[in-house]
Design a binder for these strands. Structure first.
Length: 424
RNA sequence: GGAGAGAUGGCUGAGCGGCUGAAAGCAACGGUUUGCUAAACCGUCAAAGCGCCUUUAAGCGCUUUCGAGGGUUCGAAUCCCUCUCUCUCCGCCA
C-alpha cells in the first residue's frame, strides 16, 4: 500500500511513478478527492463525538448533584447520537472509497528503475556463462524427458487436467535433489527454513498484494475462504503480520520449499508444452523482513543467493533489471534472472527478486522499533525465488542433454542422486 | 462430528455499565546506588486516525480501538445477538 502521507504531500511524485508503469495516473486524484472529503467528514464527526462525551460526563455528574437536568441532557445526547450515526456511515463510505483506490494502486518505483512500456525496455545487466552449444540439434526438454521416461505429461493430464505433470524415477529423484540442494544452500547462507501451510486465508493474500485484481491467479477452496498459495512469498511475508518486531532481531531471513498453484487464466495458449507453465509447481523461496535502510543491501543478498545456485549448477543465465511497466504490483524494483534454454534458443525467467519496500508491510502491519523508546515503523520486505524446482529441472535437461539422449547430472547434485553422473 | 471454556497492551493477567486506555506482575527503556556484575530503589513505557504548530523532529488538542460485526443505553472492555478464531475433553483418523 502506498503511504497516504506520500500521496498527500507529493502527489506528482506518485503520478510520475504510475506513468512509468504505464498505469492510469488519475487514481491519484481519485484518492485525493475521497481522502479530502473523508478528512473533512471525520473532523466534523470528531467534534460531535467530543460533545457527546461531554454530555455523558455531565450526565454522570448530574445524577446526584442536580437530578432535574437529567432529562434535558439525555435528550440532547440522544439527538446528537442520531446525527453521529448518520455521519458515521457517510464517513465510512468515503473511507472505503479512498481505501479501495489505495488498495488497487501499485507500489511506487525506485528512481533507478528504467522507464519503458514492456519487457523490451528491461535492461540486461550482465550475462554469466556461455550459451550452451551442441554438436547436434538440441531438443526441447519435453522431448528429452518423455524419451527418458522421466516426464509424463499425458498422465498428469489424466490425473488432473492440462498443465499438470507426473515426474517418474530419475526425474522425481532429480526434483528432490534440487529441493534439498536449494534448501541446504540457503540455510547455510543464513536463511531459516520454514514449512508453512499451503492453504492461506484471504487476509494473508490481501496483505502480500495477491488479492485484488490478481484473485483469478489463484485457486480457491472452501467457498473462497482459503486459497492455494501461488507462492511461498505469501506465507513468509505473512509470518509476522500484525507484529511489532525488535530491531535487534532484524533482518529476518526465511526460506521455504512449497508447492505453488496458479490458475494461469491469462496465459491460455502460452507455453502449453513442457514444464514452463504449470498449474502446480514447486519452488524454494527466500524472503527478508528488515529495516528500510537495509532493503537495498538485502535485495542484493537475495539476487546473489539465486545467482550462486545457478552458478553452482553451471547454468548460463543473464541478469535483467525490469522496467517500470514490467515491475510487479507490490515491487518497487525487481531483478529477474533468466536461464538459457538451448532447446528453445532463448532466455527464460527463472527467478524474480523484488524489493517491496514497506508496501507489503503497510498492508500486513509488519513493524519494528528502531529503538526501544521509538514509535514503531514499517519494515521492508523482499522476496526472490531461489529457485523454482520445475524450471530449474527443465533447464538442466536442456543444457545437459547429450546426443545419445542421456542427460548429465550436474556435479553438485550427484551427492543427492546416489552419485549418479547421468540419467539414461 | 459431540460437549465445554475462552479471546484485554511486547508478554502474563485483573476488570463485568460512568472514577478504566485499562490494576498488578514480567520484559524493555532512563536514572540513583555500586570497585565491577548482580540486587535494590525511583521514574518512563499501547496503537491508529484527524487537527494545530514547526523546515523536520519534538510538542499540544481531539477522536477511536479491550477478536470482528450489529444491538440495548444519555453512556459499553463490562449487558444482548451473530460471526470468526483459540483451547480442553470425548469420538473418528493420519
Amino acid at each position: 500500500m502506498v503511504s497516504r502521507a506520500l500521496l498527500r504531500d507529493r502527489p506528482d511524485f506518485v503520478r510520475q511513478s504510475l506513468a512509468r508503469r504505464r498505469h492510469d495516473t488519475s487514481v491519484v486524484d481519485e484518492f485525493l478527492r475521497a481522502d479530502r472529503e473523508w478528512r473533512a467528514a471525520i473532523s466534523a464527526l470528531d467534534e460531535d463525538k467530543k460533545e457527546r462525551n461531554r454530555l455523558s460526563a455531565a450526565f454522570a455528574a448530574a445524577r446526584s448533584a442536580e437530578p432535574a437536568s437529567l432529562e434535558s441532557l439525555r435528550d440532547a445526547s440522544t439527538l446528537l447520537s442520531v446525527r453521529i450515526k448518520q455521519n458515521e456511515s457517510a464517513a465510512a463510505s468515503l473511507e472505503r472509497k479512498a481505501d479501495s483506490v489505495l488498495t488497487e494502486m501499485p507500489n511506487v518505483l525506485l528512481d533507478d528503475v528504467p522507464d519503458g512500456a514492456d519487457f523490451e525496455s528491461n535492461v540486461e545487466l550482465r550475462r554469466v556463462g556461455e550459451q550452451t552449444s551442441f554438436e547436434f540439434a538440441p531438443l526441447p526438454h519435453w522431448e528429452i524427458g518423455e524419451r527418458l521416461g522421466i516426464l509424463d505429461f499425458a498422465r498428469g493430464v489424466s490425473l488432473a487436467r492440462s498443465r499438470f505433470t507426473v515426474l517418474r524415477g530419475a526425474g522425481a529423484r532429480l526434483n528432490r535433489a534440487l529441493i534439498n540442494f536449494f534448501l541446504e544452500t540457503n540455510v547455510a547462507a543464513g536463511f531459516t527454513e520454514i514449512v508453512p501451510p499451503i492453504l492461506v486465508n484471504r487476509e494473508s493474500v490481501r496483505a502480500s498484494g495477491h488479492l485484488g485484481k490478481f484473485a483469478d491467479l489463484m485457486f480457491s477452496v472452501d467457498d473462497g475462504a482459503l486459497f492455494l498459495s501461488p507462492t511461498a512469498e505469501v506465507q513468509l511475508v505473512n509470518l509476522h503480520r500484525g507484529e511489532i518486531l525488535e530491531s535487534d532481531h532484524l533482518p529476518k531471513l526465511y526460506t521455504a520449499y512449497t508447492p505453488c498453484f496458479r490458475q494461469e487464466a491469462g496465459a491460455a495458449g502460452k507455453d502449453t508444452r513442457g514444464l514452463v507453465r504449470q498449474h502446480q509447481f514447486e519452488k524454494v523461496e527466500v524472503v527478508a523482513v528488515c529495516s528500510p535502510d537495509d532493503a537495498a543491501r538485502l535485495h542484493q543478498t537475495i539476487v546473489d543467493q539465486a545467482e550462486s545456485l545457478l552458478q553452482a549448477l553451471g547454468l548460463p543465465y543473464r541478469l535483467v533489471l525490469l522496467c517500470g511497466a514490467d515491475t510487479g504490483f507490490a515491487a518497487r524494483k525487481t531483478y529477474d534472472l533468466e536461464v538459457w534454454l538451448p532447446g528453445q534458443q532463448t532466455y527464460r525467467e527463472i527467478s524474480s527478486c523484488s524489493d517491496c519496500g514497506d508496501f507489503q508491510s503497510r498492508r500486513a502491519m509488519i513493524r519494528y522499533r528502531a529503538d526501544a523508546a521509538d514509535k514503531p515503523r514499517y519494515a521492508a520486505t523482499l522476496n526472490g525465488s531461489a529457485l523454482p524446482v520445475g524450471r530449474t529441472l527443465l533447464a538442466i535437461l536442456e543444457n545437459y542433454q547429450r546426443e545419445d539422449g542421456a542427460v548429465t547430472v550436474p556435479g553438485v547434485l550427484r551427492p543427492y542422486m546416489d552419485g549418479a553422473t547421468a540419467i539414461t
